[in-house]
Design a protein around this nucleic acid. Structure first.
Lengths: 294, 294
DNA sequence: ATCATCGTATTGAATGACAATACGAGATAT
DNA sequence: ATATCTCGTATTGTCATTCAATACGATGAT
């Protein structure tokens, strides 16, 4: 609201604004709006015209024009000169994949995930927590699945997925409860647990067992198991996960054949930890204060 | 240069600036600077402090502070409260992987890549062109390689890699020459071709053969072959690629066993094209002009 | 043929980004 | 133990940059 409505004659006492987070003078709104353009694209909206981007992002036409122009200029957007459609350019891959390359956990975990895959012939995933969601950060696909799905980078709700539950179970109650509360607890299937107390109960169970088992709470016909990767302070930093179809696996088979591998893998990854917080050896080089900008 | 030096007394005739591209009033510098922060992170710099980010990105301390604050607030950066180190957050994966999900080519090509992998037992890649670079957008890894490397999203120079050469060979001479000229033509090995005319010659050869073969021009001991995926106008839009170690393969074996599969795959992908430009069926829904912003 | 909506370009205005600065904490050197 | 340095954080006045309204021509639907 740039051109605001005229101020009322009576001086409105200035509300004590927090001046933190998004209201901080440090927050650059232009960056946020520009990044919002990326999120306008998804499976259903692969090619968007200017007006569509404006509508989806909630920006007005002018703003959408400026941000698409900028992203196009930087090579993050392609533009069909004929149809005027914007699409994401391959360059955005750089953004996502540098994460995988800079995440020590992925690096350390990969050999163990491969080992687990060899022993079980099933898909093995590594997930991390991002707010109330889990994110798949590594995956060794099974040969059973013919489709070469791109699940890496996918976010799923933590409260109703095995990896999420494994991590929530092993963190302080207040913290897991907070995440559960903030989650948009939809009943994806009729087995989905959405009640906070019921969730606390299954967390306790998972904590006792050392792993979480989630049966058909997110996708029907699928059983998913996960074990947390704990850091030196016994805080969950990730989860190892295997999801199998009920057509090929029974609960008993899973417990006998899969769970031991799962838990060994998670523990092996945890033991491979480098420093206390998993941080790499740091270069403590003093740098000259830069004066120039732009 | 925000606080510019005082204007000289004599009126300097305003230079007729282009007012296009980055100089356009439509270009939002804040967005560009914010994105520059992402590029500060790579394999060698996984955790960065504020000052380091400032130094790497060329921003001053204040700017770095504002952009890191913003990205942190948006969830794209993690911050270690102790060491004050910033790292990329899993959320950046969303950015990269939506590309893979919105790229029709990847979707269409995947089954053919899998088929090619089955027939050869070797790694099969799909790459696209991004400026003077090729970018790996899909990959079916061989079982030979134990390391589960994350090559997806990786950029390599087009001029000295098989996929790049396959694409350059099949585009108009002027265009491929322009790309070659703009490329930073380093001799990665002593076999690397960097001369423009020599490159034109190998392009002609590849055009005649229907595929490109590059032997040890980028990495020693490796032979890489690639065939272009042509669109309806016979313009290259991607390349199918297989790279094999010389320890296991000879030129003759490659030509007999790999090349036929390679070319069939590339052609099959090309034939699977949907629309003329590969664009999906579009929804031509009129949208109400949005007035609000922010 | 008429109308609607699109994308593009321009421009004056003022706000939000900017950069300098100040301060306290922590680390290092003396 | 003290001084010194660099770091990260917070604040503030200033103005350049972003902003949003608007105008125009092209395109396509009715």
């Amino acid at each position: 609201m740039r051109h605001a409505s005229p101020q009322p004659a009576v001086a409105v006492p200035p509300i004590r604004t927090p001046r933190v987070g998004r209201d901080s003078p440090l927050f650059v709104g232009s960056l946020e709006k520009g990044l919002r353009v990326f999120s306008a694209f998804d499976d259903a909206h692969r090619a968007l015209r200017l007006t569509e981007i404006a509508a989806v992002t909630g920006l007005d036409k002018s703003a959408a024009q400026r941000f698409t122009h900028t992203l196009h200029e930087l090579g993050y957007l392609r533009k069909d000169p004929k149809t005027k459609h914007y699409r994401l350019a391959p360059k955005v891959l750089e953004l996502g994949f540098t994460y995988l390359r800079t995440d020590n956990l992925v690096e350390r975990a990969t050999p163990y995930l491969l080992e687990a895959h060899k022993r079980t012939e099933e898909t093995v995933n590594l997930t991390e927590l991002d707010g109330t969601d889990i994110v798949y950060v590594a995956r060794v696909p099974s040969r059973h699945q013919i489709t070469f799905d791109v699940v890496l980078g996918t976010s799923l709700p933590a409260y109703c997925t095995a990896p999420g539950r494994a991590m929530l179970a092993f963190m302080p109650d207040e913290q897991s409860r907070s995440i559960a509360e903030r989650s948009n607890r939809i009943a994806y299937t009729d087995k989905t647990i959405t009640d906070l107390n019921a969730l606390a109960a299954v967390h306790a169970r998972a904590r006792r067992d050392g792993y979480a088992l989630v049966s058909e709470e997110f996708s029907p016909g699928e059983i998913s198991i996960a074990a947390p990767v704990l850091d030196f302070a016994r805080q969950p930093i990730a989860a190892v996960n295997m999801a199998v179809p009920m057509s090929r696996w029974t609960l008993q088979m899973i417990e006998r054949k899969l769970v031991p591998v799962l838990m060994e893998t998670a523990q092996a990854i945890a033991r491979s930890e480098g420093g206390p917080t998993g941080l790499p050896p740091l270069r403590r080089t003093r740098l000259p204060q830069t004066k120039r900008a732009r």
